[in-house]
Nucleic acid binder design. Structure first.
Lengths: 126, 126
DNA sequence: TCCATTCATCGACGTTCTTCGATCAGTGAC
DNA sequence: GTCACTGATCGAAGAACGTCGATGAATGGA
């Protein structure tokens, strides 16, 4: 239910250093399960081609804003389906929704993708 | 079918500038559907909490390598399930697999997360 | 006041995903 | 050669997801 979408770095503290595996020991703590679920929710929102395109189309619009009627045609899906995908992107903290008269304008949340990218690059891949 | 996993930047050329929407015009081309599908496949691989944890646990191991027997206990899932998730991460280009004797060692592909992060940050969010 | 427009929600349908136990292939020790 | 061990593959069961048409709420114009 939380509208946070923190997207912290992957190798966060957990204190689950319960070692003794068969091959190689842990040199640092892995990501906490709760954090993993939080991170995965954002990635899952981007795990659908339609939503990647929607995010891109919104960003490509003038002013960085677009209403639903701008988005149904490019993706070739029905209006309820597009509305459903937009809700998922909003819940993930990637898009912001602003009602203005009869229209609902969607815009990319500033810094949301940067924070996600930071969570990726801060993972020690070595 | 391509085993590439390119993860190029989101706002790639497409030439689909077919304007005339009701609200705001496009100021640049959106992402190509084929590229969106390619990008979404990598994000979908990270869209499961178990796979985020697996990636983190592999990275947290000494030498950046871990075998399957190191991974089943921390995530609390059966060996076939863990092997299934690892295959998805390998297919997404995030993990590399190396057979050494009886053991299969998995390691994070260097630069894979960086490229993914770059694909994110190159999206014009404004 | 009435109607058209915009968009969210609901219920349903088919597909995909996650997980498991069972099984099989490959490796190394005896 | 035989056996134990590691890990991938194979169906199957249940849950989750993507999509649609139908419907409802809210807004603005005639």
């Amino acid at each position: 239910m939380a509208s946070t979408t923190q997207t912290r770095a992957l190798p966060i503290t957990t204190g689950a250093a319960e070692g003794a595996a068969c091959c190689a020991p842990l040199v640092r703590d892995a990501v906490d399960p709760a954090v993993a679920q939080d991170v995965a929710r954002v990635f899952k929102a981007l795990g659908d081609p339609t939503r990647v395109r929607l995010l891109s189309i919104v960003a490509a619009h003038d002013g960085g804003q677009a209403c639903v009627c701008d988005l149904t045609e490019p993706v070739g899906l029905s209006q309820p389906t597009v509305s459903h995908h937009l809700k998922i992107l909003v819940d993930a903290g990637l898009l912001a929704r602003e009602q203005r008269g009869r229209w609902a304008y969607y815009s990319v949340v500033p810094g949301a993708l940067d924070r996600l990218a930071q969570a990726l690059t801060e993972t020690p891949a070595r």
